[in-house]
Design a protein around this nucleic acid. Structure first.
Lengths: 337, 337
DNA sequence: GAAAAAGATGAAAACGTTTTCGTAAACTAT
DNA sequence: ATAGTTTACGAAAACGTTTTCATCTTTTTC
């Protein structure tokens, strides 16, 4: 807390507060000579402007918020990395809020944010969201909000996401091509745009290859890893058990590996597995895991860039940008013949 | 940006600004009846106090900063999770800053933080820090700073870390017990308290078991994964190549796996591996990776708790707290006979 | 029933900036 | 020399709170 402020600085220099302020902001009203003196003194006294006074006066926080379900997750960690890269370069500060997949937490966070603490919000929705009134309020007030990854269905929102439908389709196709007939889809509890779209891709692929859809093969998991392992084990032991698994999120693939280990099913011999995942060690797993990898870092970067464009009002009229960045499918041993 | 403020609220209620402010802060000066009216109106108009005005006046930011080298890293992601848990519960906001292992970035971050944007700082030092003047300035100004994981050597700093020496010792011991005679230690470039202490544990274990220390087996890696893979490959091809590897950080273990794959060395047959790591999938790797796992989440939680104790001045005099939380060693196939 | 105490409210200063506006002094053009 | 313009600076208001202090009313006390 450097208690040295403009007043102190101006006294030291024998100038008025306003002149010093202008000098520091490089105003044309101040002579080059004076600016130099001011800069030097500021440096010497290690002057740091009070960000709150500045924000209060300018009605600009120089901060953005990132609201995500969790952070100990390869995807979100990478996305934040991308976001920070852009924000730090723009001289913006980044506030992170975790919702823990809890819409109550998400709503209260959004509500607090209305106070003006940030100039914009990047958000990936939590899974138990029905429809957040807070969020629509925020947006309709003209507040810059960009959704990434888990986005709302409503068309009026700026979003950055990946081609989930396509990913789900291609992953399923891949399983089909290696001979799978009974492909299970692992989805998480609640509603997620990603899970939903990936599933639509999965179903479309089944149709395309004339494989009958089977509701029993759409397996809803929870938010608890141990519970999921049980759910998956049960699915793998049922009559007409799946010979292929498409996991909509990384953690379910991991649970699948553990589940198979416990009931002595060999991947890929007994069941083939492919999963959406940003796991860096996918190729080192036993067996190596086939993945559809969303470009998390780029999505974060793109979402942040879009947000800053909105903040800086460099938007073309009211056009709502919807960016989609392709995922990449990498076939590895877990889904090979 | 709810443009409804105290003034507006007070007009609506026919009260003075000060009374409304006091009512909202539940002051004893205001009658219960009035408080109720105020609360109701605030709710109705969705009043959100301006955080900057409040911070400016109270000289309290209700925010803390987390300064870390990177975020796409299991350890730091977990630690932040712990930090957020505590902060969110305390009603504090969390600002994250990435230094990218760059002391310039770190210094400029610290410098900005002196403006009073936060009430305290949690920091894990970057690897190319010699000694940050900014940081010592900040501390000696009485500003609350807690170091976690990568901590300074100076005794005057509050820290939360794990028993790195012990971890290094036990990991090395484990390799020795499975018959390794030439154990390499993989360290990262620059200076890290963790790497250093783990190495001291490693060297102590060698001494304890009468294995001669060999400087050629202490291998300094870089910050670039591809480069590291080359470095490790080279080390594994040299005369008197290591038969055991202790990796001081997770990413070097991963590079080791790749390196072994490329030159056809089988883990653990040809070389045994153990690593410090928070990888959730350690047991699913091929082969499963033996790890010393620092309790990242707990370290984050503990560090944040300590910071809040400092912020709230609930410290006992000037005693500097140095918390150490034990890591746990899990033997898996990569280091078995 | 007067003095003292308690209760409830409001006016205004303060926090540290930024910005608008005013005004000297210096310069330019006629 | 005079009017106009430019240059460089300062005074003061404003941002939205919090807090101190004063004020007025009501209640208590002897």
């Amino acid at each position: 807390m450097s208690s040295i402020n403009l007043k102190r600085l101006s006294q030291e220099l024998g100038l008025s507060i306003s002149s010093v302020s202008k000098a520091l902001r490089d105003s044309y009203e101040i002579s080059a000579e004076t600016k130099k003196r001011v800069l030097e003194m500021a440096e010497k006294l290690n002057y740091q402007p009070n960000p709150f006074a500045s924000s209060l006066r300018r009605k600009k926080s120089q901060s953005i918020a990132v609201v995500i379900p969790e952070i100990a997750n390869n995807y979100f960690a990478l996305a934040i990395n991308g976001i920070q890269t852009v924000a730090q370069q723009k001289g913006y500060h980044v506030l992170t809020y975790l919702t823990h997949e809890n819409s109550k937490d998400q709503d209260s966070t959004i509500k607090h944010l209305q106070g003006g603490r940030v100039d914009g919000v990047l958000i990936s929705l939590c899974s138990d969201t029905a429809n957040s009134q807070q969020l629509t309020d925020l947006q309709s007030a003209g507040f810059p909000v960009v959704f990434f990854d888990r986005i709302p269905d409503s068309p009026g929102c700026p979003t950055v996401s990946t081609d989930d439908f396509d990913g789900g389709f291609k992953a399923t196709e891949q399983l089909i091509k290696t001979g799978c007939k009974k492909i299970a889809y692992l989805r998480v509890a609640g509603y997620l745009s990603t899970t939903e779209n990936r599933m639509r891709g999965y179903l479309a692929a089944l149709d395309r290859y004339n494989i009958p859809q089977n509701p029993k093969l759409i397996i809803e998991c929870s938010n608890d890893d141990e519970q999921n392992q049980e759910i998956i084990k049960k699915a793998l032991k049922m009559r007409g058990r799946p010979d292929g698994i498409l996991s909509s999120v990384e953690k379910l693939a991991i649970s699948t590996y553990y589940a198979c280990g416990e009931i002595n099913l060999k991947i890929p011999r007994d069941v083939k597995v492919i999963s959406f995942s940003c796991l860096r060690t996918a190729s080192l797993l036993s067996p190596s895991l086939s993945t559809i990898t969303p470009p998390a870092f780029e999505i974060g970067k793109e979402a942040a860039s879009l947000l800053f464009r909105m903040i800086e009002k460099k938007m073309f009229g009211n056009r709502v940008e919807k960016t989609v960045i392709k995922s990449v499918l990498i076939e590895r041993n877990s889904s090979r013949k």
